[in-house]
């Protein structure tokens, strides 16, 4: 079991570094989340109400509907990749610094 009582969590929470991490991360996360839901639900809604659009053939028998469905995969992968890239490059180092500082305050006790 880890003992969490020796850390002043309120102090960490109110530090500008943590607030900055929180602000950047939440904006990015919820933006991605809303966009991915919007893009996903467009597929069944379109299939129900815009069938004529889905039926337009663009590449031999391949129609807009099939390309749209395939694009869902590409978009999901792209969003995941984008998130991972930004988290690795930006959020992880910020979090690591906060952890380093906090451990210093705790006097290396762990």
């Amino acid at each position: 079991m880890v003992d969490t009582s020796q850390v002043d969590w309120k102090a960490i929470d109110s530090r500008p570094e943590f607030q900055e991490l929180h602000r950047r991360k939440m904006g990015f996360l919820w933006g991605l989340m809303v966009f991915s839901m919007f893009y996903y639900f467009l597929l069944p809604i379109g299939a129900a109400y815009f069938q004529d659009l889905y039926k337009i053939k663009v590449w031999g028998p391949v129609n807009v509907g099939i390309l749209f469905a395939l694009s869902e995969f590409v978009v999901a992968w792209a969003l995941a990749f984008w998130y991972a890239k930004r988290a690795n490059a930006e959020f992880d180092p910020m979090a690591a610094e906060i952890v380093r500082d906090a451990e210093k305050y705790m006097g290396g006790k762990k």
Binding site: M33, Y40, P44, A69, A76, Y83
Partner: peptide, 21 residues
């Protein structure tokens, strides 16, 4: 045909939620 393929999309998109939050 198509409807079956469309059904599979939701199973993947589900992981966006898992990944992000």
């Amino acid at each position: 045909g198509y409807d079956g393929f469309m059904y599979s999309v939701g199973w993947l998109v589900a992981y966006i939620t898992v990944l992000l939050v």
